[in-house]
Design a protein around this nucleic acid. Structure first.
Lengths: 336, 336
DNA sequence: CGCATGTCTGACACCGGTGTCATAATGTCG
DNA sequence: CGACATTATGACACCGGTGTCAGACATGCG
C-alpha cells in the first residue's frame, strides 16, 4: 500500500498540484473538464487528503475540544455523542478534556491544552459555560468557543440552552396538580447556572398557585448522589414530612428514593419524588422517576455546528438558541 | 501574541533550526553549552513546538483512537479516563470513536477513520477486542492496536484483561457460601468474550461445590437493562423459584431487582441478586448490589501505555497483562 | 606529526498540502 | 479586429518541523 499524495494525483492526472488542490476545495476557476478528470483520478487512486498537511498549511487542526467537569456519566456521553455527530459531519475531530473548574490553575491547564493541541475551537459544558473567568480568557486569546446549557445571557458568545426554569416550573406544577403543597426542593451545585434556574422555576410555580414558599423545605445539594443522600436525610426528618420532593437532578432524586425506601416509606404512596435530566437511572430504578428530559445531544450538536460555522467564517453572527425540555411522568409521583 | 516558531528560536539563540530540533528531541551530539542556551531561549520565548508540523514531518498524528460499542455509559467513561491518563502522560491525544460492531460495513468505517484521521494507533474495547475480522484487518494494514478486556489469547497483540472467570467464580462461591444452591444465571452479549468467561466461572464454582448444573436456570441476556428485565421475567417464574440470581452485569442485575420488587419480593430476604462490573447503579439503588469490581481505568491505561510504547518502537514485545477483579459485597445478597 | 575517528553544527531537501502571483487561453465589445 | 476583462492553469514560496549529509573541529594513537 503505497501512499497516494496530491503529487501522485497531479502527475497521474497531468495537472499541477495546485489544480488538484482547487478541485479538492471546490474552488472556482477550474474548467468542468479538468474538474471531472481530477475527480476521476481521486476515485481511481482512492485518494484522501492528509489532514495534517492541510492543517499545517492552513494553520488549523480540525480538532474541537470538549471541556467538562460533571459527575454524571450519562450527561457526558450524551454531550460527546451530540458533539461527535456535528464534528463528523464537517470532518472535524473531537478531543475530550475532562478537568476541574475549581482545580488548581484552570486557566493554565486550558492554556497548555490550547498550545499543545492547537484546537480550532472549544465547546464548554456546565459548569465551564458559566465561568466568567474562562470566557474572558478565551475572548482575550480570541479562541472560538460555544457555550452549552448556560443560562447566562451573552450575545457575544455562541450559546445553546434548554429552558430549565420552564422545566422546573412544569414539574412543580405537575406535583401541585397531584394535590401536593408541601414540596421539598434540593438545589444543585452553585457553580452551575442551571441550579438557580431550576430553583426559580420551582418558586414561580408555587407562587402561581398561591403556595407560600417555605425556606425550611429547601436543601442544598451539588448534583451528586451523595449530596442527595445528605439532603434526603434532612428532608425526611422534617415534621410534618413533605408529601413530595423535587430534586434538581435524577441522581439526587435516586438518593432520596433509596433513603425513603430504607426508611420503610412507600414511593409514591407515602411520598412523591421527582428529578431532572432523565438520566438512565430514572428508568432503571423502581419506581421509575418522574423527571424532565432535556435534549442534551441536540444542544451540543447545535453548539458545535455553530462553532464550526464560526471557525470557518468569523464574521458570522453568534447565535443564541433555546430548546424545549419535556416533562416525563413515571411511577414516582402520585396523588396525595 | 505573535507566533514563536522553531525559526524564531533558532535566530534568537543564534543557532540553526536543526540544532534547536536536536535539543527539542533530546538528541545526542549537542554540546552542553549550546543545549543550555537553547533551553533558556525556550523559556524566554515561551516556545511550544507545533505538533501538526512535527506530525507532518514524522508522518505521525500523536492521536490514538478509542473504539467502543457499549451501552454502559459508566464503562465508556472509565475507559476514556484511563486512556486519557496514558495519552496525556506521553503527549498524545485521544480520539473517541463509538461505532457498531454489527453495523453496516464496520471495516469500511474503520478504514475511513484511519485514512481521514491518520491515527497512530487504536485501543479496542469489547466487543471490538474480540473481533477477529477487525484484528486481521488491522494486522494486514499494520496498524498498531491494543486489546482491552478480551479473553482471547493472542501473543501477537497487546492485550490487557482482568480475570472475569475468576471473578464470576468468586461471586458464585459467595452465593454458595450463603447457602444458595439454586442459583440462576443471566448471560451477557454473545459477541463479548467476557460472556463465556463469566458463564464458565459460574459453572466451575457449581462443580467445585458439587452442585449440579441446571440449564433451566440459565437465561440469555445481552448486557442491556432491557434484556435483563426479559430474563428476570423468565427466571422469577421458574418453579420452585431460584433463591439467587447472578446476572452477568449490573444493569441486568438492576433489572432483576426492579422486577422482583414489583412482584412484591423482598431482596435479599426472598431472593439474592448479584451483578458484575460495579457500575454506579450498583450503589445507587436499594439494596446495593453485590458485584465484581474490575479495574477498567487501569486496564485501559496500561493498554494505551503499551500501545504508545509499541508505536515508538515497533520491535518491542507485545505484552499480555492480566489484572485482578475484586468481590464487593453489598446488601443484595444474604443467607438463604 | 599524520591520519583515523568521533563530536558538533548547519545547509538543504522534504513531509503534503495551501496562498500568491504571473501567464496563457478564452470571451466580450466598441 | 484590437483592446481589455475574465477564466484557467501552473511555478514557486511557504507552513514548522525532521532526516540526510557534508564539513569544521577536537581527540586518540601509532
Amino acid at each position: 500500500m503505497k501512499k497516494v499524495t496530491i503529487n501522485s494525483v497531479a502527475e497521474y492526472a497531468g495537472v499541477s498540484k495546485k489544480t488538484v488542490s482547487r478541485v479538492l476545495n471546490n474552488e472556482p476557476n477550474v474548467s468542468p473538464a479538468t474538474r471531472e478528470k481530477v475527480l476521476k483520478v481521486f476515485k481511481e487512486l482512492d485518494y484522501t487528503p492528509n489532514p495534517i498537511a492541510r492543517g499545517l498549511a492552513r494553520n488549523r487542526s480540525f480538532i474541537i475540544g470538549c471541556l467538562y467537569d460533571n459527575p454524571s456519566k450519562s450527561y457526558i456521553t450524551r454531550v460527546q455523542s451530540g458533539a461527535l455527530e456535528a464534528c463528523h459531519k464537517h470532518n472535524y475531530n473531537l478531543l475530550i478534556h475532562p478537568c476541574e473548574l475549581r482545580g488548581e490553575a484552570l486557566i493554565e491547564n486550558i492554556e497548555h491544552l490550547l498550545t499543545t493541541s492547537r484546537l480550532d475551537g472549544l465547546v464548554l459544558t456546565p459548569p465551564f459555560s458559566d465561568s466568567q473567568e474562562l470566557i474572558e480568557f478565551l475572548k482575550k486569546k480570541s479562541i472560538n468557543y460555544a457555550r452549552v446549557a448556560s443560562a447566562i445571557e451573552d450575545e457575544t458568545s455562541i450559546s445553546v440552552r434548554s429552558n430549565d426554569e420552564q422545566g422546573a416550573f412544569e414539574i412543580t406544577e405537575h406535583l401541585i396538580a397531584l394535590g401536593h403543597s408541601r414540596i421539598a426542593f434540593i438545589k444543585g451545585h452553585p457553580d452551575h447556572s442551571a441550579t438557580e434556574q431550576r430553583f426559580s422555576g420551582y418558586k414561580k410555580a408555587l407562587a402561581e398557585h398561591n403556595i407560600a414558599y417555605d425556606a425550611e423545605l429547601v436543601a442544598e445539594g451539588n448534583f451528586s448522589y451523595h449530596s442527595g443522600a445528605d439532603s434526603a436525610k434532612e428532608i425526611l426528618d422534617i415534621q410534618p414530612r413533605p408529601s413530595a420532593v423535587f430534586a434538581s437532578n435524577d441522581y439526587m432524586a435516586a438518593a432520596v428514593l433509596k433513603l425513603a425506601t430504607q426508611s420503610k416509606l412507600n414511593v409514591p404512596e407515602d411520598i412523591s419524588i421527582a428529578g431532572f435530566d432523565n438520566a438512565p437511572i430514572a428508568r432503571h430504578i423502581w419506581p421509575g422517576l418522574t423527571t424532565i428530559a432535556q435534549p442534551v445531544e441536540e444542544m451540543t450538536r447545535q453548539a458545535v455546528e455553530q462553532l464550526i460555522l464560526q471557525i470557518s467564517d468569523p464574521e458570522v453572527e453568534k447565535t443564541q438558541i433555546t430548546l424545549e425540555a419535556k416533562l416525563i411522568v413515571r411511577e414516582s409521583t402520585a396523588n396525595i
